[in-house]
């Protein structure tokens, strides 16, 4: 009985991640999502460049509800990855590595990315 493997508590839903940790996870996920969305982006670019018909087809797709949502997602992950990447580079040169600066910049990245994505799409 005593020889059984000891349990390990590692339930990520029960561990409170600080904002910098949440931002970091989105940074990872956004990088992965960007790579996964490359084929779709290339397909749409290719289609829009074939002829006038293709161009209007892609245009109307991206202006539709689903298309807009995909575009918003793409833009959001791109901007989050970009902003958090810049934040990491700054931390590497000791800018914003102290308390509480790293918390503020993590909040700023996490909020600014969706906000600026909406702004760029002209929704706001």
């Amino acid at each position: 009985m005593a020889l059984q493997k000891p349990p390990v508590f590692l339930n990520l839903l029960q561990i409170r991640l600080p904002i910098a940790g949440i931002m970091s996870i989105i940074h990872r996920a956004s990088g992965m999502l960007m790579v996964l969305l490359i084929p779709l982006s290339i397909y749409l670019l290719d289609l829009s460049l074939t002829d006038e018909q293709g161009f209007t087809a892609v245009g109307s797709l991206l202006h539709g509800t689903v298309g807009s949502l995909i575009l918003l997602l793409l833009l959001w992950v791109l901007l989050h990855h970009l902003y958090s990447g810049i934040r990491y580079l700054l931390i590497d040169v000791e800018i914003g590595v102290d308390r509480p600066a790293y918390r503020y910049t993590a909040w700023a990245v996490t909020l600014l990315a969706p906000f600026s994505a909406l702004l760029l799409l002209g929704i706001l």
Binding site: L17, P18, A20, G21, S24, Y88, I91, D92, E94, V97, D98, R99, Y102, R103, A106
Partner: peptide, 19 residues
Amino acid sequence: CHTIMNCVDACPKNLNPTK
């Protein structure tokens, strides 16, 4: 180390392992 900085948040002595 991927500069996640959970360590800095957790340290009860206010130290900064990331730094």
